[in-house]
Amino acid sequence: MSRAPKPEWAPHTAVWIGFPSHPDLWLEDLEQARSEVVAFAAAVHAEGKGEQVLLVAADEEAAAEARRMAPFAEVVVELFGDIWLRDTAPIIGHDGLAHDFMFNGWGGKYDLPGDDDIGQRLAEERGQQVQSHGWVLEGGAIDGDGTGLVVTTEQCLLNLNRNPDLSRADIESRLAADLGFDRVLWLGDGLLNDHTDGHVDNLARFVGEGRLALPVGEENDPNWHVYQQAIERARAFGVDVVTVPSPGRVLRDGEIVPASYMNFYIGNAVVVVPIYGSEQDQAAVQAIQAIFPDRKVVGLRADAILTGGGSFHCISQQIPA
């Protein structure tokens, strides 16, 4: 039996979801971001048929708003810098331990109070045993299929702004020792203008044992060459590749943003896909529905969340059953 964390499609007890709490970070996007987060949380909860939702608010003022907007959720109040709990909350291992890694603000870009230890505090709040690890690893940088196979990108995990003293072999050894991943599929770069330095959960997602979903796009897509290289590497590695349309060139204030349908969340009852008003939205939802015939796949707008740099997968971290 693999020592690796259970795959995301395995049953969950609950999910942590970050609730936008700092008006100075979100500015005019705050209210819309909160509405999008609550819509996502409601879909995952699925009127009690999905999983327990733990909305994490950074202070009592935000918590009161979270309780008003999402009466179906349990609200947890813990100081954090921002809502990207995929990267700052603990990774729950196959052993049930809460594995807490160092966090340095995505290579020193965003140093916000509370983000460096929110993982330990969330685990302790639930009475979970914490195993701390002395190297930088964000949850969005890896994705596993439950058998010991993990996918990541060289752009992120080999970036000198994370663990400059660790080689590729060192990182592979630590992934094996700390999380039980015994095989690593290395992709190259992530999406253009992704401030996480190419998190894999915006590019490639395991959707079954040895089965990897990847985007495809037209030549006017700013990431089409990234997708093609990733598909070639994945097939050469030996995994089964299934493709999903890309949203194409998505602009916000004239700038290309890292919009991706791959940032979906696989819940107990539903798969929630971020959509952006692209003409490919419906085709992507249909493609992902074909991948998950046993779950309802829903597309929800994530425009305001994307202004912060991520989407539904980025703001959530599941707690396996």
Rank of each mutant, 00 (worst) to 15 (best):
R3S: 09
A4F: 03
K6W: 07
K6T: 07
K6D: 06
E8C: 06
E8P: 06
W9L: 08
W9T: 00
H12I: 04
H12G: 02
A14H: 07
W16G: 01
P23K: 05
D24C: 09
L25E: 14
W26C: 06
E28V: 10
S35G: 13
V38Y: 03
A39Y: 02
F40G: 01
A42N: 08
A43N: 08
H45S: 09
E47Q: 14
Q52S: 12
V56Y: 09
P71L: 13
A73E: 04
V77K: 12
W84P: 04
L85N: 03
L85A: 05
R86G: 02
R86S: 07
D87F: 11
T88V: 10
P90G: 07
L97W: 03
N104P: 06
G105C: 07
K109V: 10
K109I: 05
K109M: 13
Y110F: 15
G114T: 04
G119K: 01
L122R: 05
E124K: 15
E125L: 15
Q128I: 15
Q131V: 05
W135Y: 11
L137S: 00
G140M: 09
A141V: 02
D143Y: 02
G144T: 01
D145M: 03
D145V: 08
G146A: 06
G146T: 02
V150W: 10
T153M: 01
L157Q: 00
N161E: 03
R162M: 02
N163M: 02
S167R: 06
A169M: 08
D170M: 01
I171C: 06
S173E: 10
R183H: 12
L185E: 01
G188Q: 09
G188T: 05
L192I: 14
L192V: 13
H199I: 12
V200M: 09
D201K: 12
A204S: 08
A204Q: 09
F206W: 05
V207S: 02
L212I: 05
L214P: 02
G217Y: 11
G217A: 08
E218T: 15
E219T: 14
H225I: 11
H225K: 14
V226D: 01
A234C: 12
A236T: 08
F237M: 05
F237H: 03
F237A: 03
R249W: 05
R252T: 12
V257P: 00
S260C: 12
I266C: 13
V271G: 04
P274M: 13
V285H: 07
V285F: 12
I288G: 01
K296T: 15
V297H: 05
V298C: 09
A302P: 06
A302V: 10
G308F: 10
G308T: 10
S311F: 07
S311W: 10
S311L: 13
H313R: 15
I319Y: 13
P320Y: 01
A321I: 00
